[in-house]
Computed example of a mutant assay.
Amino acid sequence: MASRSEAAPPVPVLRLADLGFEAAAALLRRHGLVLHLVADGAPIPGSYWGEPEAGVIASQVHARADTPLHSLLHEACHLLVLPPERRALVHTDATDSVAEEDAACYLQILLADALPGVGRARLMADMDAWGYSFRLGSARAWFERDAEDARLWLQQRGLLPGAA
C-alpha cells in the first residue's frame, strides 16, 4: 500500500502547470470525470492531504496549477475504481480498502502514458520523490514485481485500459 510522507519532496515533480490544464482535463473526460481548475492560492475542495494535493468530490477532481500530476492522477483513479453509486457519495476520502488504494496506484501509473511528456517512468519517479512508499522500496519495483493483485483487481472489474 502507498502512503505519502510528510517530508517535502527532494526533487521537483511535474505539476499541472507543467502539463497544461487541457491535456489533463481531456484525459479525465475520457473516463467520465471532470477536472476543475482552482485559482492559485485558493483552498482545493476535497483535498485529503491538503494543498497542493488534488481533491475529489463525486466525479470531480479539483486541482491548482501547483498540484502535482501524480496527485491529480491518483485522486482521479480513486474515483475510477469505484462503481458509480459509490463515486457519487465521495467527498475527500475516496477509498475504504487496501485493494482500492493499490488499484488506484496501479491505474495512475498506466494513465500517465496517456499524458504528453509524462509517461509511467516519470510518474513513478515523481511518486518516489514525493514519498509514496512500497514494500519493495520504489514505485517501479512494486509495479513490475509486486502489483499482481492490483492488476488482477482492475482486470476483474474491466478497468485496465484495453480490457474488455
Score class of each variant (00 low, 15 high):
H78I: 11
A129E: 00
I109N: 13
D113E: 15
W153V: 08
F134S: 01
V118C: 09
R86P: 00
Y106H: 13
D126T: 04
H36T: 10
L73W: 00
E6N: 06
L35C: 06
G55C: 11
E75G: 02
R4K: 13
D40K: 09
R64C: 10
G41N: 13
G137Q: 10
L14D: 01
A139T: 01
I44F: 05
Q155C: 02
A2P: 15
V56L: 11
V98Q: 04
S97K: 11
W130L: 00
A104I: 02
W153R: 04
I109G: 13
A147S: 11
F21R: 11
I57A: 09
P116V: 08
V118W: 11
E53N: 10
A17W: 03
C77L: 03
A139S: 13
H91R: 13
H74G: 09
A26R: 15
D93P: 00
D113L: 12
Q60T: 12
A129Q: 01
P68D: 15
V61S: 07
A88C: 04
S47G: 05
L37S: 08
D18C: 05
V61H: 06
L79K: 01
D102M: 14
H31T: 04
P68F: 14
R64I: 11
Q108G: 07
S138A: 09
Y48V: 12
R30Y: 08
R140A: 10
R87T: 04
H91L: 01
T67V: 05
P83Y: 10
A88N: 00
R64G: 15
G137S: 06
Q155H: 09
G162A: 13
D40G: 08
P9R: 08
A63F: 04
A17R: 12
D113T: 10
A139L: 00
T92C: 02
S5C: 09
A99T: 12
Y106D: 00
A88P: 02
R140F: 00
L14P: 07
A121I: 09
E53S: 13
C77D: 00
V11F: 05
P9K: 06
L33C: 15
R122W: 03
A103S: 12
L111N: 05
L115M: 09
H62L: 11
